[in-house]
Write a protein that binds this DNA or RNA. Structure first.
Lengths: 193, 193
DNA sequence: TAAAATAATTAGACTGTTCTGTTTATATTA
DNA sequence: TAATATAAACAGAACAGTCTAATTATTTTA
């Protein structure tokens, strides 16, 4: 029989709270309240707020990479349709969430990515991991002549995903999915060969 | 002879500090220290930190809109080349700044755009103002058959500028301009007819 | 296997600092 | 003189993080 609390549960609460409220706007007390653990337990598991945030990003990044890999492996459509379907799903999730969160990695990158090396590089690392997953799908699309060969898979992935984050961020103030929908249409019109 | 301090000077300090450090990470005391004004004067001019931030965004938004209008009016190149030149300049500024700031409006949108209606809508409003300036240039490009007519000027502006913000945000963690350069190349390859 | 020792976790009160914003008093300008 | 600006002290809440102690789990020893 283990102990009462475990790191993973606290990290999941942290993911939720940080994603919705940002980093500096969230106090440790809020994490404690929402996860129901006392302060002593928190500092038993984590060195500091910074350390905690880094681990939150790491867990989310790894989980999401695995999820993306599975999604594209299980997708039986063409590479382009798989990518469209992936982004549509992301957009639906964001809409269901009333555009309140966006992506934790993007939010953290923008808010503290430059001030805090630990958090910044952790966020960048996982972003690159996702790009590699996307690039492998794009490469397939290039081989089947669906996607332009004017740029490398990684260049296209970087272009596409950074652009997606751009429109995703926009929805935080527009609170409207129309711009995301147009983005999807335009992007896939552009990258097809 | 006027009074010792004026609102505009304090707003400029606020712009600089907020852009580099974000909103919640900055205390009023830091603004006071860097602008040299005492707290009493600050609260004489501004109702609250929130009110101050809103006015900072407003001033920056208006100034930048004017600046953009002038830039495109004075630009003697073709619409596409003017747009390229505009984004190149933005990228150069960001590089000179060692990728430490990004755009205040984007930063604020991502960090507090969803929690704070006042700041969120102020940021959105000015973003839309910029889009309109860009859209009028794009429209010229469509009329001279430089730019695709598959989408409206505003749709293209939204796509382009949100995408630019996406890559701009990326530089906060990559600290490398290469992705911005590729973005520029790709975007203008895509939108040309 | 049972008792003893050690290690890890849980618990929350507490510390010193910083936060936004107020208040009161004085100085400046019109 | 009347309105506004400046100045600094002040208030109360919130901040990250520490501390001591109690409890629970695990390992060691008899």
């Amino acid at each position: 029989m283990g102990y009462k609390y475990n790191k993973e549960d606290i990290l999941n609460v942290g993911y939720d709270v940080f994603r919705r409220n940002g980093y500096h706007n969230v106090g440790i007390n809020q994490i404690l309240k929402e996860s129901g653990i006392p302060k002593g337990s928190f500092y038993n598991f984590f060195e500091s707020k910074e350390d905690f945030a880094q681990q939150v990003i790491r867990q989310y990044g790894e989980t999401n990479t695995d999820w993306m890999k599975d999604f594209f492996e299980d997708c039986s459509l063409s590479p382009v349709e798989c990518l469209k379907s992936f982004y549509s799903m992301m957009m639906n999730l964001n809409e269901e969430d009333e555009y309140s969160g966006g992506c934790l990695v993007n939010n953290m990158s923008v808010e503290v990515g430059r001030q805090n090396d630990l958090i910044g590089s952790e966020a960048n690392q996982h972003f690159i991991g996702w790009l590699n997953v996307l690039a492998s799908v794009i490469e397939k699309g290039q081989k089947s002549n669906e996607i332009t060969k004017d740029f490398t898979p990684l260049e296209l992935a970087e272009y596409m995903h950074a652009g997606f984050y751009g429109v995703l961020s926009r929805t935080k103030v527009t609170r409207n999915r129309i711009y995301m929908d147009i983005w999807l249409e335009m992007t896939f019109k552009f990258i097809q060969s």
